[in-house]
Design a protein around this nucleic acid. Structure first.
Lengths: 259, 259
DNA sequence: CGCAATGTTGATAACAATCAAGCTCGGTGG
DNA sequence: CCACCGAGCTTGATTGTTATCAACATTGCG
């Protein structure tokens, strides 16, 4: 939709500086996985040596997505997975009533598109929450490679399985918890994911609007806003716009029940 | 817990009669997939010839689970997948508050345990809703086999991916829909799954209690009961205990928005 | 600087939970 | 065989949480 424009990283993501040499929206770079700072949390995390190189060849292409633009849209034919390199995405499902619903948020190192392997078409839009970059992983060659690289096959099975567990956790959350518990769980979940990327677990920036959070959690934006205010008054967090800082993470964990 | 006892199929499941020749709770049979009536909807659906035989050897063992007994429990080490052969199961997650929540129902042909591949341990209990039988699929040999049988690897990827899409659909449901819409969606979902098994899509038996339905949908059992009554009064369905018959499926679909 | 998008806060209303009472059916024992 | 018992289910009355409607504040961008 929009052609990519040079832009600054909004946060100090630990990322090899993109050295694009093409003006085209997609740039082909030399096998980059071995030097990527996200390797330990990304798809090829169990690979090394020749296996890693071969994977790097499959996933050598990068793509930049401007804030608000879609990486893919519901109905698009599926033939590629994407690994988030920098930035953040949301997955959005559109019901026939026209109302949108956010089904997930995706941070660096996470894989987009796994849910479309089965049907061959995407059921959701993947929209960039900020200017972002992804690694393009063509699916057919990946599947081929997985047949000859056991650790890759194993990791793919695990990645898919992990998505299922995560979704189950979220269902527990949506189905059985109060608004307060949902928001607490959401904040804790973000915290863990940022920590995994090497960021502070107690202080981070929300990349999404109150409305998107509400949509994701099955709440209205007003309820999200009210709860954030209340959490602040109660000394659990400090919020200022998109900046969140934990003041009493233990109490938040109690609210959810475990974690 | 309870040892298995001879029991009758509560419904005419299109299933090769079990010809167990051992009294032990687990019976080893000759490769059965090629003659199993569920083959077209089960894991090895894309296999034939030698591949099917090899898969049948991996999955040759059967196991019977009495109503109310667990196939596995949260915390158990994961090393096997299970394919439901007859009967039905629920997956139950237990929060530290002690309250249980049903995260899924599993009918014949469906695979149990996929969510545990990643963590190596089960996070949920799988409990039989009625006397049931499963095929035991040891995971390590399956993974091994998938490396040499491309259609098997592909199908496993699809099966995992399909679970993810299903979960996303459910999240849309739990997060954004009214009680009425959730129940309508649930009934339609069951209908489709029964049809896939060769049963009537418009008339079927609920294998679970109102409480279990409520838990699954994030509602109380009273709300489920009230809604079923209301659907009946409105001429959408006929309910009598566990028996459900659609009277106006189109109207139900409108309620949900699509499907 | 002004406008549109985002966020906050308040008042009211609706939907579903909770509490409570009784019903139905299937199984079991007298 | 019948009576009883209990799990599962239905229905009603009331409460509470969260949605909805509405007004206004703030921020960032053109």
């Amino acid at each position: 939709m929009l052609q990519s424009i040079a832009y600054a990283q909004p946060q100090p993501i630990p990322l090899t500086p993109a050295r694009s040499r093409a003006a085209a929206p997609a740039a082909r770079a030399a096998s980059a996985c071995s030097s990527c700072s996200l390797r330990s949390v990304c798809l090829p995390q169990d690979l090394d040596g020749g296996d890693l190189d071969r994977f790097g060849q499959v996933a050598s292409q990068k793509r930049r997505i401007a804030r608000g633009a879609a990486l893919y849209r519901s109905g698009d034919v599926f033939d590629t997975l994407y690994a988030v390199r920098s930035g953040a995405f949301k997955s959005v499902g559109v019901s026939l009533h026209g109302d949108e619903k956010v089904t997930g948020f995706h941070l660096p190192g996470e894989i987009l598109g796994l849910d479309a392997i089965n049907g061959g078409r995407h059921d959701y839009d993947a929209v960039a929450l900020e200017d972002s970059e992804v690694c393009v992983i063509p699916y057919a060659p990946l599947e081929q490679l997985a047949l000859t690289v056991p650790p890759l096959q194993r990791h793919l099975f695990k990645a898919l399985s992990g998505d299922i567990s995560r979704d189950h956790g979220l269902m527990l959350l949506l189905g059985g918890m109060t608004a307060e518990q949902r928001l607490a769980a959401f904040l804790l979940s973000l915290s863990r994911r940022y920590r995994r990327l090497g960021f502070s677990a107690s202080s981070f920036v929300l990349r999404m609007t109150r409305e998107e959070i509400g949509s994701y959690l099955g709440l209205t934006l007003e309820t999200v806003s009210r709860l954030l205010s209340r959490f602040q008054h109660e000394g659990l967090i400090a919020v200022q716009q998109r900046d969140v800082e934990f003041r009493n993470a233990g109490r938040l964990m109690e609210m959810v029940g475990h974690w």
